[in-house]
Amino acid sequence: MIFEGLNLTIKRGEITALMGPSGTGKTTLLRLITRQLVPQQGTIWVNGVDIATLDLASLYQLRQRFGMLFQNGALLTDLSVFENVAFPLREHTKLTGRLIRHVVLTKLHAVGLRGAADMMPAQLSGGMARRVALARAMVMDPEILIYDEPFAGLDPISMGVIVRLVRRMNDALGITSIVVSHDVAEISTVADRSYLISGGKVAASGSPDELRTATSELVRQFMHGMADGPVAFHFDAPDYAEQLLGRGTE
């Protein structure tokens, strides 16, 4: 069982951060919210609808109001940057080529990559790929934008750019943002509300400042990056000395 008694609310128009140690199921939770996975028990309400009960057509209709930034960008490798961003428009709208070009260039300009429109995904750095993916995620003007580890593996400049973009998109477009991350410092600068997930449930919630000053050992360990605490650094293993001396299993 990954989650047990997990209960959280994501408010419209806010940036909500989902944080937690590795392996706590943050990405799984995102996949449940977007129904890439179906829960065996419990319910997930999105815009007042139990998402597990939707048929495929209704689900796809709902997903048109979602934008999702995947951890690795997930750009379509056989399409150029321009075509990647244009992809949802070509699939779901009957806009003219000229209008699509206008919209795509506007979104690429917003992420600072208008000049990379003709490049292929393989030519992009990790940070650029994620910015293109962000442009694609917002090209349909979604109501809910979901970010899965948007800061992982980025250099400080790219990270700063993405952090500012997350905040700017949310404020300018009035969308609801859900950010999964364990980059405490970065996410704290943009999140309105944070949930710390551990052991399959919400261990703590509140504004980043509230979490930072919390007294709970788990929250302190996570927020301050301490090695010792309720979350063990070492995975379960036999006695170290015994294993090194060969008295344990091979």
């Binding site: 977007t34 690795n72 993916a133």
Partner: peptide, 22 residues
């Protein structure tokens, strides 16, 4: 297989595009 491994098929699903069809 690589499209699946690099989340491209999941990304299509999230863009409300049926990967089986597309």
């Amino acid at each position: 297989g690589l499209m699946k491994a690099t989340d491209q098929l999941s990304a299509m699903e999230m863009m409300a595009v049926n990967p089986v069809r597309r």
